[in-house]
Nucleic acid binder design. Structure first.
Lengths: 340, 340
DNA sequence: GCTGGCACTCCCGCTAATAGAGTGCCAGTC
DNA sequence: GACTGGCACTCTATTAGCGGGAGTGCCAGC
């Protein structure tokens, strides 16, 4: 038996009411609040079917119905009415972001904004290094045998790292190294650099070979492999909304998960351009976040993606609203980056 | 009536037991667990006095006693037996910190280490800019009219900021600006720079005056005033230990406070060299953290302080252990910085 | 295929009763 | 004078029992 239109309508009503009231919703309450044009008994029959199909369930016999993860899934995929952002929200975004002064600032403002608008936990990934291009590499001597390597990318990220040289380096050497490195790497996307770095060493004249090898290993190891991703987080206090009801009793597992960068990156990583992804319940594959949903989106100038951002909350969340907000913020940040 | 030795001993026993069991402690249990050499009745009399003096209280008639903030205060000030770190803990510190590769790494490892060892929320302040000295300033052209200003400090912090120039700048100009700025500011403590920056502008030849003015304003505004402090936070999941009993019901206010940089800075700021500060309950003057205590310490090379770090938990915390750990970690990080 | 009616189930909130822990006080002892 | 054992008292936490109510499933009728 397939689901006719009315059954879908019933499902939508259940989701909407449950999200709002946080209480199992019964047949009577449903017909009262929504003009379904049929009697409670009919709705009950529909509910029985929806339950059999796995879209809703009863916490216990003779309680109202609650959506299952599958129910939310169906709701998000087929029943979501696009909810345009209110003018107030649009204004809020602009007011919040205006005057952002550098990348750090943009990211911090964004994450706070998201947390505030959605009233959930927000996560913003810094522009990913591997998807950025090198704008300039700078070498600064900090002692006779140590250089500070500073990399500036086109997305505004600045990464630095100390390089321990094999022996004392002269100003002239630094100059030469800087010239060569920039010549080869400036303008290249980070992801494409490893072979170029390799080549740099090979092409180097003998006397600077050792120094360049040092530099190259730091370049490879640090700027590409390690610490490649950074994150900002905000709004953890929002987890306590809705009492202890969401997240089955304890926040502990959720808070633990939020401390793991790897987990967060997984949640908001691997996104398709121009789409907003919704992971419901254990779709996110993370044990600690069984009862959480994640709405995420990639951002970047134009249709490219340089990083991800998103929002985490209880499965019982306002999907249409959250999706709209996340999408709008992602777009706004992308435009902001495009201006640089 | 003053407190004789036995009464103090009773207070200590109460604090220790309560911290361990999280339950109000009664006279009988006390004499059983500690060899006080007197009968429960006697202890009860002592308790009555301690209560009158405000060091302990009863949650309700005929329950055991619980320490008040004043009780903890007395305990920390006069009754704390110094608890040396276990060899395992020492090893843990070293194992954790070894291989830290740059400042970011050091700070992140430190905050995680603290959270893990104390099983509380940990906060680490990045070396404060105002207490750092400029090691080098670098100017990197990113377009014809924009420079990236990068500042490297002796504490390892690297700050960068985009500077919008009044007009196109040539390589030679950049060179000259860089030379002048470094000549004047390198080696200076950040706190001392404002007048020097002022001087830089005044001493500048006419043709570069406009550019230098621009640069100077960014130097002042950004590197000294704004974003001067950064923080790392870890271990929020530890707030959920001890159920909902600590923090009177909700974590909400605590989580909210932890999101405010200003508040955190206040908690671990203004520290005396070589001391560990303990703020108990509302001694910290922050409404949201009435039922929290903070143990903090300054760190830095030698006896100087370049930043603060600390731990936040319920007033009912293991003070001797936490104090020892915080102190040890602060010292370790200080030594680490001294090596650079 | 929809509806009204009805019996049934189960949760929730209320009250009452009980056990237990701990106290304060007092009279007695060293 | 300080300490102790004994005792009555108070308050909490737990358990059990008992409607009220919301919601369901099913069935007969339209």
């Amino acid at each position: 038996m397939s689901l006719d239109d009315r059954k879908l309508e019933v499902l939508r009503a259940i989701v909407e009411d449950y999200v709002e009231t946080q209480e199992p919703v019964g047949s009577k309450a449903l017909v009262d609040r929504h003009k379904l044009g049929v009697s409670p008994a009919t709705v009950r029959n529909d509910m029985a079917v929806l339950e059999e199909e796995g879209y809703i369930r009863q916490p216990h016999t003779s309680a109202g119905r609650v959506p299952t993860d599958a129910g939310y899934r169906l709701f998000v995929d087929r029943l979501t009415r696009i909810k345009p952002l209110s003018p107030a929200e649009r204004r809020a975004i602009e007011r919040f972001m205006i005057g952002a002064v550098d990348l750090d600032d943009v990211v911090h403002r964004t994450v706070r904004l998201l947390a505030q608008l959605t009233r959930q936990v927000a996560v913003v990934q810094y522009p990913s290094l591997s998807r950025s291009a090198v704008r300039h590499l700078e070498l600064v001597p900090v002692s006779t045998t140590r250089l500070m390597l500073v990399m500036i990318t086109d997305t505004g990220r600045v990464e630095q790292r100390l390089v321990e040289m094999p022996g004392p380096v002269q100003d002239g050497d630094v100059w030469e190294l800087r010239r060569r490195v920039n010549e080869k790497l400036a303008g290249q996307r980070l992801a494409d650099t490893p072979p170029l770095v390799q080549k740099l060493v090979e092409d180097c004249d003998f006397e600077r070979r050792a120094a360049m090898t040092c530099l190259a290993s730091v370049l490879l190891e640090t700027l590409v492999d390690r610490s490649e991703e950074r994150l900002a987080l905000a709004g953890t206090a929002n987890l306590t909304r809705g009492g202890v009801l969401d997240f089955q009793g304890t926040l502990r597992p959720v808070l633990e998960a939020l401390e793991e960068e790897v987990i967060l990156l997984k949640l908001i990583g691997d996104l398709e351009p121009r789409t907003t992804r919704v992971l419901i319940g254990d779709e996110n594959q993370i044990d600690n976040l069984r009862s959480a949903s994640v709405v995420s989106s990639g951002y970047g100038p134009g249709t490219t993606i340089v990083g991800g951002l998103g929002v985490l909350g209880p499965t019982r969340m306002d999907y249409p609203g959250t999706i709209a907000t996340v999408r709008a913020v992602a777009r706004y940040v992308g435009d902001l980056l495009a201006q640089n």
